[in-house]
Amino acid sequence: MARILVTGAGGQLGSRLVARIPDSIGFTSTELDITDPAAVGAAVGPGDLVLNCAAYTAVDQAETDRAAAFRVNADGPRRLAEACAEVGARLIHVSTDYVFAGTGTEPYEVTAPTAPRTVYGRSKLAGEQAVAEVLPSATVVRTAWVYSGAGADFVATMRRLEAQRETLDVVDDQIGSPTLAADLAAGLAELAALPDPPPMLHFTNAGQASWYELARAVFAGIGADPDRIRPCTSAQFPRPARRPAYSVLSGRAWLAAGLRAPRPWRDALETALV
Score class of each variant (00 low, 15 high):
A163S: 15
D169A: 15
V119C: 08
D173V: 02
T111A: 15
A186C: 07
R165V: 15
S210K: 07
S177A: 15
F100C: 10
T157M: 09
T143R: 13
L194P: 07
E162P: 00
H202I: 05
T103I: 06
A152E: 14
T118A: 12
M200Q: 14
E213M: 03
A150D: 12
V141E: 09
S210R: 10
Y108M: 10
A112D: 04
A144C: 15
A189R: 06
N205Q: 02
P199V: 04
E109N: 03
S148R: 13
V171W: 08
A182V: 14
V141F: 00
A181W: 09
E106C: 07
K124M: 06
L188N: 02
T157F: 05
V155F: 10
Y98V: 05
R117A: 14
S137D: 09
A182F: 05
T143I: 12
Q129F: 04
V134I: 15
P195C: 12
E162G: 05
A209M: 10
V146F: 00
R142C: 02
G151Q: 05
E109S: 13
W211K: 15
P199W: 07
R165T: 14
P136G: 02
E109P: 05
L188M: 09
F154S: 00
F100R: 03
E106Y: 06
P195M: 13
R159P: 05
A182C: 05
L194T: 12
A185F: 14
T114R: 12
V146N: 00
V146Q: 01
A150F: 06
V119M: 07
V146R: 00
P195H: 13
P199H: 14
P198S: 06
A192K: 12
V110S: 01
G176N: 01
D173I: 00
V141K: 02
P136W: 00
V131G: 08
E213R: 14
R160I: 08
A182D: 14
V146A: 01
T114H: 08
P113N: 06
D97I: 03
Y108Q: 03
L201H: 00
T143N: 02
R142S: 09
M200G: 05
P113R: 04
T118Q: 07
G104R: 13
A144K: 02
G121Q: 12
T103G: 13
G151A: 09
K124C: 08
E166V: 13
A101P: 03
E190Y: 09
V141W: 01
L191R: 01
